[in-house]
Amino acid sequence: MTTHSESGAVFRSRKFTDFATVKEALISKEIGASFILAPLAMQLVRDGVPIKIVYLGHRDGSALIVAKDGPVRHFRDLEGKIIAVPNRYSNQHILVRKLMRDNGMAPGSIDVRELPPPEHPAALASNSIDAFLVGEPFPAKAELDGIGRVLHLTKDIWPDFISCVLVVRNDLIAEERELVQELVSGIARSGLWLEDGLEHRMEAAQVVGKHFYFQPPKLLEYVLSKPIDRVRYSDLAPLKEDFDEIMELAVSSGVLSGRIEFEAYVDPSFSQRAHRAWDLAHLPALDAEAPVAPPAAAPAAAPASADGQAPKPAGPPGKALNPLLVPAAGGKPETGGSQ
């Protein structure tokens, strides 16, 4: 993200390396919005931090990685071992607790440790941990470096897995609604563009790798294509049923100490408006020769569903704007957090 708004709004990004520093930056109003872990957002609201979830960052896109030549073949083989997760308040942590319960393992039978995501592959390589469950590209990095192998992709054990969400400070939601809307709509359009074909994903890997993540584009190409649904950028509206499920699992596994109402930590109005706008943008042009009833393969003209989810794009847009490549005034993001 950078200064690329048609309306003149300026969006800048600041890179962090751990979630604790992101939390402090939100509290001190250094930043107005951030991508953070979904349960962390819930906990921050419980703690009185004035933020709300307005959109999802992606779906799926995490993996449980074990040592490449190690003996672990099933989750139960991890009994008595050490698993790293990105944060106590993460869906990765909740998923480990759920898998333990589903496999009939005692709550303390796996040592779950909190570790900043960039440190996971090195910790596995040095045998400090036996496995890790974290978001991409660190699982892919472990694979490509010959350190680890995938035991499970989250998409296969928790379909539509949610990791990071976009939170915005409440004062901005109240006073800068158009600015927040522009951000949400931009992310939503980027998601549709990414889902529109492998070539877009490869293009995104180049841009994001070189200018934002500062990671090898080849690594991100792998993440975005092996397999292509390893990370998904569709269905990003924050839905009550998804968050109710997270809340239930978080509380029952002891990750969160109590429930809070969906409305207290989610503002779905921005995603609903973004998706309504698309419906209008994707209406097919009137064509006198076209059949009155659209063929079944024209889903883009379908109205938004009640839950506010976006329709899938109408076939190949062809001239779709690459939202990542609009001329940028400030090429590199700022760097913050503990580096």
């Binding site: 600041r14 991508f35 978001g135 991409e136 951000l183």
Partner: peptide, 15 residues
Amino acid sequence: SGERGELLVGFLPVT
């Protein structure tokens, strides 16, 4: 003049 605001967005290089 219709000039719009500025928003600083935090992120970690992880999905």
